[in-house]
């Protein structure tokens, strides 16, 4: 590939056309029909998705429907480097406590290593809270390759000021609003980026 083109791809200014998702891909509903439509059916599985949060603790409305469906499918949920103590009482309240929550307390490279191990393991779903500086392109590529064997992972981090291309399936910016959520889809498999999606 030409170096100039490679540089443009790394900057994220080139949209690369893909063949239509294969029949083997599955989608997990996001809990919002509008978002399902925009993402081509929901969260792609296998896949690796990025949620950039405007402020910490803003992910719950997207997270809980995903955990619910993971549990219905008999998949173990791993919480890597969570931002605070995960409450068993809350999981119980949301009817999510019946099975399969494993919290992994690790920072930095250990957390990245743990995420890769989890994504390589069948019947596991991973949520990982990592700062932008940890989610370098080579690491994301490794996680993406690990997830390709059938798993789904969500990397949750803060807003990126200078977004560069990363091999995530979908990249979302998430803001909480008075009425619910507002999203910018920075990258999606099924189309161009879109901004200011209101979900309530």
């Amino acid at each position: 590939m030409q170096p100039n083109l490679q540089r443009l791809i790394e900057k994220g200014v080139v949209w690369q056309g893909q063949t239509k998702a294969s029949q083997a891909d599955h989608y997990i509903k996001t809990g919002f029909s509008k978002l399902d439509e925009l993402l081509g059916g929901g969260w792609q599985t296998p896949g690796l998705h990025e949620w950039q949060l405007e402020a910490p603790f803003s992910e719950q409305r997207l997270l809980l429907p995903l955990v619910q469906q993971a549990i219905e499918q008999g998949v173990a949920v791993f919480w890597v480097n969570p931002p605070a103590q995960l409450s068993a009482a809350s999981l119980h309240y949301h009817d999510l406590a019946d099975a399969m929550h494993v919290v992994v307390e690790a920072k930095g490279s250990d957390a990245c290593w743990a995420l890769e191990q989890i994504l390589q393991t069948k019947n596991a779903m991973a949520f990982a809270w990592l700062p932008q500086k940890e989610t370098t392109s080579p690491k994301v590529r490794r996680w993406y390759k690990a997830a390709e064997s059938g798993q789904m992972g969500i990397v949750i981090s803060g807003f990126s000021d200078h977004p560069e291309a990363r091999p995530y399936s979908n990249r979302l910016k998430i803001r909480l609003t008075e009425n619910g959520l507002a999203l910018d889809i920075l990258k999606r498999k099924s189309g161009w980026p879109v901004e200011n999606i209101e979900l309530s």
Partner: peptide, 18 residues
């Protein structure tokens, strides 16, 4: 916890490794 999981074989070694 994995009594209902589809296939737990891979999960135990993973947890052990972690």
């Amino acid at each position: 916890f994995f009594h209902d999981a589809k296939d737990t074989q891979g999960l135990f070694p993973l947890i052990g490794k972690l």
